[in-house]
Amino acid sequence: MHEFRVQVGPAAFRIGSQWKRPLDQLAEFYRDYPVPEIPDYSVRLESVSLLRRFIRPSVAINGDYMLPDAAPLPLAQGLLAAEMAMNLQMALGWRRHLLLHASAVEKDGRALIMTGQSGSGKSTLAAMLGHRGWRFMGDEFVLVDLDSGDAVPFPRLISLKNEAIGAMMATALDGRFGPLMPETPKGDIRHMVPPADAIAAMSRPARPALLLFPSFGFDAAFREVGPSEVFMRLTQASTNYVALGEKGFSTLTRFVQTVPARAIDYRDGIEAEALVNQLWAECV
């Protein structure tokens, strides 16, 4: 078993693989990240069977936390398998912070947090803003500190999907991109290394200042979202809220009582950026 270790924000991973190539890719893209001694999670990329290790190799995802029905991926998508496995450990195992399925960027020590269904564009928006004057904090999970209420970064590789791939390659001319993985279960996927400032500052939290629920594909508009609706939506967006018990409750209630929230509609990145800047100026 080949082994690779990486620290992303507060979380440390050990990834084992029967094939060397996915780990070489990880090592290349995560080369500026710290290497932990004792990992929080172990993840394994293993062949479905001995035969399938060599013939039409197929990667089964195993680890400390697993989903029984997680379908294997072709070896060419090994990098995606590793990223999915790392996400799964966080989603099912993390208890050090309130975990929100959200993206975030930072400016002046304050965090803009975006959450919504897959396809809402939260990941692409964070990636884009990260190249336009904001510090990128993460495109998948935002970790809310249980004592301070601060947002803690989790800047793993950015996962770009479908149209977002071309858009980001045009925006981030100096960006480092992974191999294009066409026709994955999630569509076309290409990973992108977060900007250098995001990696350098990955242990620096920021105070949540604005929460957005983006919806892609509608005329530009925004509306205020009340605290009880925010609360309900964020409990849906959190995989560990219930497990954290009273700490989760006090952390989330403080969040919804102190962070203004807006739902925004947008048709393209330019519209979204204009709305973000307008709301940031009004609310923060």
Partner: peptide
């Protein structure tokens, strides 16, 4: 129980169950 009024709705967190009721 921890009772936190938000707007028209109120959160009730029950310590024994760990369940939040809206």
């Amino acid at each position: 129980i921890l009772v936190t009024p938000l707007d028209s709705l109120t959160l009730v967190y029950q310590r024994r169950s760990g369940i939040t009721h809206i």
